[in-house]
Amino acid sequence: MRRLWLIYGKLIETSTQVTFQYRLVHFFWLIGMLFEPIIYLVMWTTLADEQGGTLAGYTTGSLAGYYIAWTLVRQWNIALTPFGFEQRVRNGELNPHLLRPIHPFHYDLSDFITMRIIGTLYWIPVGGVLIWLFQPTFAVDATMIGLFALSLALSFVMRFVLVYALGMAVFWTTRVSALFNLYFAIETILSGRLVPQALLPSWAQELGWWLPFRWSFGFPIEIIIGKLSYAEIWQGFGFQIGWLIVATILFRLLWNAGIKRYGAVGA
């Protein structure tokens, strides 16, 4: 375990140096991503305004809070997609990774952690401007911020492992992009990325409870805007950890079975 920590430390250090070469690229990329939540935010606040200031328990202030927290959560919602993994398998880029003494997963996770940390640093000024523009309300006490940070970290790791495991399908067939797109479309709708849970029909909310999606997106947001009680927050952590365990088992099983089938294309 100690060895693994040392490895992660070193890997994160190297990939920080690599990532910092492209500062402006990352910044523009962050700006480009802002418009999606702004569109949703404008749409729902307009509606809330027209209905006298509240909408399904959201005020215009908490809607603004929702979508501003959204921009930070979205940062931590980025994982190595099955498409990225497909490219590796198809082009034989996986080969050098397999020769190393450390599992490729660790390289990827440390790379993504680095990018997310740097992304968060870039996010700070942007988030400041958004807060000034849209006047949100947050639940800002130290405990909530701490719980938010914890749930954010868990949601990142949980989704990362889950999506990585999904990518293992590529070992069996490379024609699965339609399936992945369907998965991501459902995720967009049920995770809280498109709309807050409370605006979905009740059966969809019920369904979302048992699926991993909302625990990796809507859950941290709802903590920081003060929508959840402590009981609900602990329950949410339970779901996050549960899905993390499921995803890890799934990943191990699929990897072990898949790697035997891998024919090292391009070798």
Partner: peptide, 23 residues
Amino acid sequence: RIESIFEVLMGIMAAGRLPTDIY
């Protein structure tokens, strides 16, 4: 390297999904 400028442009263009006067 200007690809990232297009990210911004594509983001702004997505705002065309709603009528301008709502923004």
